[in-house]
Design a protein around this nucleic acid. Structure first.
Lengths: 239, 239
DNA sequence: GTCAACACTTTTGTTGACAAAATTCCTGCA
DNA sequence: TGCAGGAATTTTGTCAACAAAAGTGTTGAC
């Protein structure tokens, strides 16, 4: 009854007793691989237009090709990679029109995010952030410490998304943000842009501290509209 | 001959000359399978909470299980299906909070869509649609021909998305719309809702015909806000 | 009669091999 | 030398078998 089963083909032996013969590490999950690849693309470790060979990646991560394949499919869904049938996956190169499309979306989505965050938290919640952007952040811009500035800017961004409490919105903002991440530095060094952006953040945070949700939305939208205008003006320096 | 062979490396023969031994059709692509499954889920052919067994689907579509697997991964990314490790994929059951999150997003995204569509077309472009919603659509509601009404409503929707000319926006609207598709009928039969919705569409189209992009955005947002309010009021009849 | 442990079945997850397409490299001809 | 044609190699796509996990049914002790 129990044995005798398995009548297919394939003789019994097949002693595959080595889970990972090369690395002695437990194999990376799809999520981990996607994370690593995302980071590399974001910091242009892998430049736009570069090809991602499945075999190479499989070897590097010490996993079967199937898992790399799944990871690439995930990256494709996120729009970070383009796959051409029988040709493989290449890092998407974003052109100017795409950037503007992204800004159109950011305008309404981050506006919504600001409104929801205001509605769903106590106004005092944002006092600290307001003071940060009124004082220390101004210094950072003046002394050109962009890395620290960006780090704190992203912290505010994450706090707003968290406070908005809409997972779908969070995911969409994530998707479009990671595409422009490579641009942030280049935009921030445009003449005057960083300081203008800071002032607009102060304006938005003031509205939030006063509990004016719709005003906060409006101010965030204005901020992004002006960022887009700046971008339009200096587009040849960006891409 | 068939068994016992296949030593390891790649002997010459290997006569797998039957591409699809069962169906005599060429196998369906991942995109096709995803399409079929999407439709089934949308019209609740497969009810929420139902399990999708890979083996069954593979048999039905006449493809290898791998391809079904890829399709399910795509559906998972779209949020139509949830996958639990070693347990399989089940159709996502959307709860009330998710629905409200979706409406928050629709409000700003469809508002943006209306604005862009207005900015990027000639005002006359929308004259026909305006007349349709002023006249014939009113009759359809009065005589309760919901199917035809929905069909034309979706045609307008598609036209707006097309005219807006922002692929990213189009994709996002698609993603969130297909999740609520199952609800549309149930919302439309709420007392008075269909007629109110029609009037709001007329208001938006009037703005568009006059070339007032920002007004069109505002009106679309108002329309969805009121839809959400209606939903809140009658939520127990919806879910 | 109830419940826990165990064996069996079903279903999902992963792997390596094979097939097909595209690219590269080589050869022969003008 | 330049290049068209074609073999050889690389690379992606697909498949069926194998392994592991969860689910199910049965038996036996109390």
């Amino acid at each position: 009854m129990p044995a005798s089963a398995r009548p297919k083909t394939r003789a019994a032996a097949s002693p595959r007793r080595t889970p990972s013969p090369r690395a002695s590490r437990k194999p990376a999950t799809v999520a981990q691989i996607v994370g690593v690849l995302r980071a590399r693309i974001a910091r242009q470790d892998i430049p736009p237009g570069a090809k991602l060979r499945e075999t190479d990646l499989a070897e590097e991560f010490g996993v079967a090709r199937t898992r790399i394949r799944d990871s690439l499919a995930a990256l494709e869904q996120r729009g970070l990679v383009e796959r051409i049938p029988n040709r493989g996956a290449v890092v998407t190169r974003l052109d100017l029109s795409q950037v503007f499309h992204i800004y159109e979306l950011r305008e309404v989505l981050e506006g919504l995010c600001a409104r929801l965050a205001t509605e769903r938290t106590q106004p005092e919640r944002w006092q600290r952030e307001l003071e940060l952007f009124q004082g220390p952040m101004k210094e950072l811009i003046a002394s050109n410490e962009l890395d620290l500035y960006i780090e704190r800017y992203e912290a505010l961004r994450r706090a707003l998304i968290e406070a908005a409490g809409n997972p779908l919105l969070a995911e969409m903002l994530d998707t479009i943000y990671e595409k422009t991440q490579v641009l942030i530095r280049r935009i921030l060094i445009l003449p005057g842009r960083a300081e203008i952006g800071r002032q607009q953040h102060v304006a938005m945070l003031e509205a939030m501290v006063r509990g004016k949700a719709e005003l906060a939305e409006l101010r965030r939208r204005e901020g992004l509209k002006s960022a887009r205008a700046h971008l339009e003006k200096f587009q040849k320096y960006i891409l």
